[in-house]
Design a protein around this nucleic acid. Structure first.
Lengths: 150, 150
DNA sequence: CCAGTTAGTTGGATAGTCCAACTCAGCAGC
DNA sequence: GCTGCTGAGTTGGACTATCCAACTAACTGG
């Protein structure tokens, strides 16, 4: 964050990364979506230091990705749950996981999900209109920064 | 990179982020996939400073995401093209763009793609096996860090 | 009263980023 | 041959972020 200079391409990828692109942000979100919603659990599972995790949780709450919710008063204790916006980041995490499984992690995938259909979950990115897979080559730029392309 | 302490969860999301999670990495990849494959073009379009971009290009080449290819000797000039691994990151970028369009960028999406089917491209994350959409709730953890879950 | 739990905050060292200016090589015009 | 231009970086110095251990603060259970 901070250093996003005004020039550059106007782009929702850059805007998204300004919110969740800092170190630990997506790992925090992974844990929250896995059900680890308490500070110490998040710190233990991600391995991040407590100070930056406190800062990240704060910015993610400010950005509307997480919600801070008291689960005890006396002593005041809070847990962090994903908002609608936070849950909408699941495809990003799944896409990253899929790519990591294929191209980074050696050996079999360390984390395996089961889809409600019964099969092991593997993500496919498809066109929402026609349902056929999207790969490089099957799409072309239509409009960039408000300017129609040829 | 660097500071990934040995503990923490064994996870392809973390592994993926260790490769492409640093600042500017995904924006560099966005430009390369858009066809801006030369150093100065990448610097201008991303807005990143030349020194970190040089460093990022180097790590992305080392990680096998990009490939450095000479397009002129005398003077030696290189361009950067996505490898198979790099092109496989497209779903990550599209998922980020989609989320940014919805939850971050105010107003209409700045970048619009057309799918080969003719419709404006909107991404849907579906189960590769059954083709039905994946949302939070339609999947459950099967195995985590090599350990079967109940 | 003392130890333990939970959720942070603080301070100092280390690492990463920003930015402008510089290099180095060839090329284009005069 | 000299000057300026382009393209691809590299360098130095200021600034910012991250790491890590130790600390606070408010309870709880024995």
């Amino acid at each position: 964050m901070s250093g996003v200079r005004g020039s550059a391409r106007e782009c929702s990828i850059a805007n998204a990364l300004a919110v969740v692109g800092e170190r630990w942000s997506l790992l925090v979100l992974r844990e929250v979506l896995l059900g680890n919603v308490r500070f110490d659990a998040i710190a233990a599972a991600t391995g991040g230091s407590r100070d930056i995790l406190a800062a990240r949780l704060h910015t993610l709450v400010d950005a509307g990705v997480l919600e801070k919710r008291p689960y005890s008063s006396q002593p005041r204790r809070y847990e962090y749950v994903a908002t609608h916006s936070g849950r909408a980041l699941q495809p990003v995490l799944l896409a990253l996981m899929d790519w990591g499984d294929r191209y980074v992690t050696p050996g079999p995938p360390p984390t395996v999900w089961e889809h409600s259909c019964g099969a092991e979950l593997h993500l496919a990115a498809v066109c929402a209109a026609c349902g056929s897979p999207v790969d490089s080559g099957s799409s072309r730029l239509l409009r960039l920064g408000g300017v129609d392309q040829v």
